[in-house]
C-alpha cells in the first residue's frame, strides 16, 4: 500500500463527491443553486488536480495548473455573481 495508491483512492473519493455535487448543477431549482454547485465543483477539482500531481510524480507541472484553476474558479464565480446582480434575474 504505497502512498500513490492512497492518493489515487483519495482522488477517486473526491471525484465521486464532485459527481454528487453534479446533481445540484443539473437539477438545482434556480440559477443561484447552480452557481454554488459549480463553485463547489471547482474547489474539488483543484484538490483532485493536486492529488494527480503526486500520482503522476510530475509535481512542478500540476501545481501550476491547479493554482491557475483555483484563480480562474474564483474569478468566474465572482463574475457570474456580479452579472446576475446587475441583470436581476432570479
Amino acid at each position: 500500500m504505497t502512498m500513490t495508491n492512497f492518493f489515487l483512492g483519495l482522488s477517486l473519493a473526491i471525484s465521486f463527491l464532485a459527481l454528487l455535487c453534479f446533481y445540484r448543477v443539473v437539477f438545482g431549482p434556480g440559477a443561484w443553486n447552480r452557481i454554488v454547485a459549480v463553485n463547489v465543483f471547482g474547489t474539488k477539482t483543484t484538490v483532485v488536480l493536486l492529488l494527480m500531481a503526486f500520482i503522476y510524480a510530475r509535481v512542478d507541472m500540476f501545481v501550476d495548473i491547479s493554482l491557475v484553476y483555483a484563480l480562474l474558479n474564483f474569478i468566474g464565480t465572482v463574475a457570474i455573481a456580479k452579472f446576475f446582480e446587475k441583470k436581476g434575474e432570479v
Binding site: T46, L50, V63, L67, T77, A81, K82, G88
Partner: peptide, 23 residues
C-alpha cells in the same frame, strides 16, 4: 494555493450571497 483558497472561497461565497439577496 491553500492560502489563496482560504482567502478566495469565502469571498466568492459572500459575492454570491450578496448578489442573490440584492436580486
Amino acid at each position: 494555493i491553500s492560502v489563496f483558497i482560504f482567502l478566495a472561497n469565502p469571498t466568492a461565497t459572500h459575492a454570491i450571497a450578496k448578489a442573490a439577496f440584492v436580486c
